[in-house]
Design a protein around this nucleic acid. Structure first.
Lengths: 175, 175
DNA sequence: CGTAAAGTTCAAATATTATTGAACAAAATG
DNA sequence: CATTTTGTTCAATAATATTTGAACTTTACG
């Protein structure tokens, strides 16, 4: 078990309070946990971002571990994920070897980082697979080919629309 | 086990081919499985939509079951999910009691259905939780309150931006 | 009605994903 | 350079989500 205080493996609202998180901190952590869930990220990622978001000053990994009651492994991986998406930044404090973390608060940057890191690669992969598919279709008999080309063109059209919308939406978020 | 042909529980590319799916159908099913995964939907939902998308004519549930080799339960639940999001429609054929399904092909309608059915309720729930949180914050001491209000206002601002973008993006997709 | 076909539900089984923690690596400190 | 602090990795474990299939409901048909 990752921590000494709890009587079981679940980190619920009660245990969070016991660890010294205020009601507001607990609520913000919960809020971001449900957002993380919506975006298909692990719960621990939501917890960490939520805690940093609620916290006035930056936090080191061991502080995050202590306050959320999660394991070193989860904290390390969660912070890496958040760094990869540029949802958190490290800040340096004189006389302290640890890395301190603070959250990115700009919606535009959060969205851009998530799109670039987590969505972009998968769309690129899809695009690659579609290209392969078009090769297969080109070899089919004319009757069959007509139907399949129609379908694949439909997806291509979706992709073109998406590629127009995304940069536009990001500009919209600039504010 | 849901089907008689396979030697194990996995439905891979090989088994799909054996069931009489063409190379193109297999590729389209795979394509939508990975899209479904990206959107946090069960694989079976992607399979079903992919098969319908690849299919020139509408299909009944038992045909979907036979061709994809999934269970009655999965097919029923998957089709319900797709109907809920308006990603598929039922069509009627004379002299056949079964419901036949065809896919929605318009990106705008697909996106709108997904947002309304799967994203909307969660955002509403988040909004509700934020309102509760604001009540708690209002009761805090002035010093603490200042910090927390700042954080929550940030989220409110995100929400306002999101609420402006979504209808705009949907209009953009109308084409 | 009685029967059969079509479809749904849900508890149990399975598959997938996240978390843990101990072993390891890197880097600063004295 | 030995030691301590900080952080990472990854195999085992725990937790979660999906799938299955048998029992059930609903609807149509003769």
């Amino acid at each position: 078990m990752a921590h000494s205080a709890g009587t079981n493996g679940k980190r619920g609202r009660d245990e969070m309070s016991r660890r010294g998180l205020s009601q507001v901190e607990v609520a913000l952590v919960e809020f971001f946990v449900s957002l993380a869930d919506m975006a298909g990220m692990p719960k621990s990622v939501g917890e960490i971002y939520g805690l940093l978001f609620a916290s006035e000053e930056s936090l080191a990994m061991d502080e995050i571990i202590a306050r959320l009651g999660l394991s070193k492994g989860s904290a390390s991986q969660g912070l890496r994920f958040l760094r990869d998406c540029q949802a958190v930044r490290t800040v340096y404090r004189v006389g302290d070897r640890r890395d301190f973390y603070e959250p990115e608060l700009g919606l535009r940057n959060l969205a851009a980082g998530f799109l670039k890191e987590k969505i972009g690669p998968r769309l690129a992969e899809g695009s690659r697979k579609l290209a392969q598919l078009e090769e297969v279709i080109a070899k089919e008999t004319p009757t069959l080919r007509r139907v399949h080309e129609n379908r694949v063109h439909r997806i291509r059209s979706w992709q073109r629309t998406g590629q127009k919308i995304i940069p536009f939406a990001l500009k919209f978020l600039k504010a």
